[in-house]
Design a protein around this nucleic acid. Sequence first.
DNA 1: TTTATTTTAGAACATTGTTCATTAAAAAAG
DNA 2: CTTTTTTAATGAACAATGTTCTAAAATAAA
Lengths: 205, 205
Amino acid sequence: MGVSERRIRERLDTRQSILATAKELFLLKGFEATTIRNIAEKIEYSPSTIYQYFKDKNEIFYTLHTESFLELIKQMKRSELHENPLEQLIALGKIYVQFAEDNPELYDLMFIMEAPIDFLNLLDETQWIEGKTAFDYLKSVISACIDKGLIKETDVDSLAYLIWSTVHGMVTLSLSKRGLRIGLSNPETIIDRTFNIFSKLLFKS
Amino acid sequence: MGVSERRIRERLDTRQSILATAKELFLLKGFEATTIRNIAEKIEYSPSTIYQYFKDKNEIFYTLHTESFLELIKQMKRSELHENPLEQLIALGKIYVQFAEDNPELYDLMFIMEAPIDFLNLLDETQWIEGKTAFDYLKSVISACIDKGLIKETDVDSLAYLIWSTVHGMVTLSLSKRGLRIGLSNPETIIDRTFNIFSKLLFKS
DNA sequence: TTTATTTTAGAACATTGTTCATTAAAAAAG
DNA sequence: CTTTTTTAATGAACAATGTTCTAAAATAAA
């Protein structure tokens, strides 16, 4: 009997349509402005139905956060087009910044909002695998740089954390609108210029 | 007639007690969890009274944000105890990180939350003076380093933005709990170690 | 003492996330 | 084909939120 299989499929479809609609509305109106009732209305279900597919709003956040990491990792792997690990590392930084600029709401979900991490706590997961995967990838590229003598410093953890912090910092200052209106001469190019200086510092040492 | 003066004083007192209570509750329970009704109850006024002193919740946020900057700037000036601008810059970084660790909720308000900046937009203020003041202070210390030949790079704007981004990045990764659970060997010391590497990079170039 | 002004309170509104009892639908069993 | 059981979806309801509005209380001015 393929009946139960069809039912499982239908359930997954409904679940997916909830997620897709949630994502669409989030990107359109932001997280705060998107309500369960909004999502329900769009997929023509009652609000309470959504709670049969997701425990609460945080679980929707968490799921989208996980999905978004798949996309980020995919983008990050484009850096492998470069042979030189140094160029690869620079490409990685640019890809990361680009991803954040292209998907500010998703970036918020992945790296700023508390909801996904709270949900992780609920699951008793000791590791944040999505973040760890991306971080490990960064570390592997840095290790390659070290192996080829392109970077003097050898503490990979700290180096990776430094690089991540820097790009994350630049990106979040932009997203939170703190990078503007502080008297910069060319605010729109500040990330590029800062990125270049940082690269120089990193490789000339 | 000192009557009207007393009334003005009383109004300011009430306003201040609203702010103090708001701050106390924010620090205690976080922003989301603190409601207008909470604040009202604590100062033994009705919720609607608060709206005679503040336009809305965002104005309370904005005012606390401004107050907090006074405290941060005050802390930052402790760096002047050092003679050497290089040591001063390092002290500045440590003070900044310390401030964020000591006052995570306030840091959120000052550098992450949208509310204060939204309120700035409402006021048609083209400049974020609180942020600019702190940023200008950082730039002055960097300029001193450059003048003494302690840093090779000369683009002060970018250098300042780089340093700010890096410490801001480290701090926000901690506050959003993204720095843990990614497989670091000693997560509790990562900020210190990263800070040291960054200092080395900055001054040996 | 009366009038005017300012300050406070109380009730009410629209929205929010979420729950729960009930109904509708579908599948399984007879 | 009918009945029973399981599953899915709904609608009403709850408590809490920020905020507004009208009326009352308190205070100052006349």
